[in-house]
Each structure stands twice: as C-alpha cells, then as structure tokens.
Simulated assay, not measured.
Amino acid sequence: MSPRGVAIPDLRERLFAAAERVVARDGAAALTSRAVTTEAECAKGVLHTHFSGIDEFVAELVLDRFARSARDAGELASKVGRGSVGGNLAEVALALLDSLDPAVVGLAMTRPGASTHTRRALEAGAPGFTAIQESVTEYLEAERQGGRVPEGTDAATTSLALVGTVHHLLLTRTPDSVTAAAETIRRLTAVLLGDAR
C-alpha cells in the first residue's frame, strides 16, 4: 500500500490495469472504486481524487485504450513495403480487438455517465476509431502506390470496412468468442485485399 501523500508514478495506468484485472477475474459487476484501489494497492479515496466517479473512470479507461490503439495504427506508416499487407492490417485490427475486455466495453456502453463521457470526448477529438481508420487508409494508399495493393482498391472504403468490423466485434464479442473474432479479422483482411483463398 502506498503511503498517504506520496505521489504514485503512472497512477492512471496503475488504476486502469487494476480495473482490467478486477473485471477479468471477477466480472463487470465487481468493478467498484474500492475494488480498483485495493487491486492497485492504493489508498481507497485516490480514484475519486482523480476522477469524478466510477463512470468517468470507466470512460477514461476506454478512451486511454482507444488512444493506445490509434498510436499503434499510426505505426502502419513505418511498415509500408515490409511484411504482408494483410498481416500488417490484421496486426492492427487484432491489437484493437484485444485493447479492451468485452466486459469493460459493456460497462462503457451500459452506464449512461460513462457512455456520455466517452462520446463527448470522441466528438471533441480524442483519438479513437476515426484516427485508426485514417491511419489504415493512409497505409493502404501508400501500399497501393507501391504496387502491393491492387490499383482499383478503394482505400477509404476498405479501411471503413475493416475498422467498422473491429468496432462491431469489440462491442459484441464475449470472452468465449475471442478466438472466433480473431479468425473473422484474418478472413476479412484477406477478402478486402482480394485474396479470399
């Protein structure tokens, strides 16, 4: 337990990681501020010192993971001409799919305060699915110019199809369907790139 009044390095990430462990182990219903701070080995009131409540905390956790996924997607630019195009796209899509536990996504959707906070932050420009889609579009256009994607490929529509499908899977999958969702992503990237074998 951290002593009272002593700064905790990377406190947000420590609390977010603790919340993910609580949800993975005990389910979404177990996610309370006390459960999070106990798991993070912090003083009980520290969550409420930094967040207005559990709804804002859940929303900020989701936004943090979306921002991380957007940064990962931004790395596609460094992979132009390297690896397989389908493999590079699948890697980004699977990272996004794995960025949040389905139960955390469920909390962010079903708790009105968390849902509203998340939506407003995304509307205000917080990195999320739009940023990921833009990175994928830019990557596909660069690969098309390099001859690794067929000339007639509509990069923006392909990107929308991929990111939209990941969004759907992220919101609807269950812990038992993670493997099936990953296989869907692999099949989809093959189809989108014209390799449905």
Score class of each variant (00 low, 15 high):
33 S>R: 05
31 L>H: 07
2 S>N: 11
185 I>A: 02
42 C>E: 01
184 T>H: 10
155 A>Y: 06
15 L>S: 04
19 A>H: 03
13 E>C: 00
11 L>R: 11
160 L>D: 11
156 A>D: 06
194 G>S: 08
94 L>T: 12
5 G>T: 08
20 E>F: 00
136 V>H: 01
83 G>L: 02
27 G>I: 04
34 R>M: 05
8 I>R: 10
118 T>K: 03
167 H>G: 13
159 S>P: 09
173 R>H: 13
195 D>A: 13
49 T>I: 12
102 P>I: 04
109 M>D: 13
11 L>W: 06
141 E>S: 06
49 T>P: 06
128 G>Q: 06
169 L>C: 08
193 L>W: 01
56 E>V: 06
81 G>D: 03
8 I>S: 04
148 R>S: 05
143 E>F: 04
133 Q>C: 15
54 I>S: 00
41 E>H: 15
63 L>A: 02
128 G>R: 01
21 R>M: 02
47 L>F: 01
195 D>V: 12
185 I>T: 06
106 G>T: 07
102 P>E: 03
31 L>F: 08
54 I>G: 01
62 V>K: 05
185 I>Y: 03
13 E>N: 03
86 G>Y: 05
59 A>T: 03
170 L>W: 04
86 G>I: 05
41 E>Y: 14
140 L>V: 07
117 H>K: 09
146 G>M: 02
93 A>Q: 09
10 D>M: 14
161 A>T: 11
74 G>V: 10
184 T>R: 11
15 L>G: 02
167 H>K: 15
138 E>T: 09
41 E>T: 14
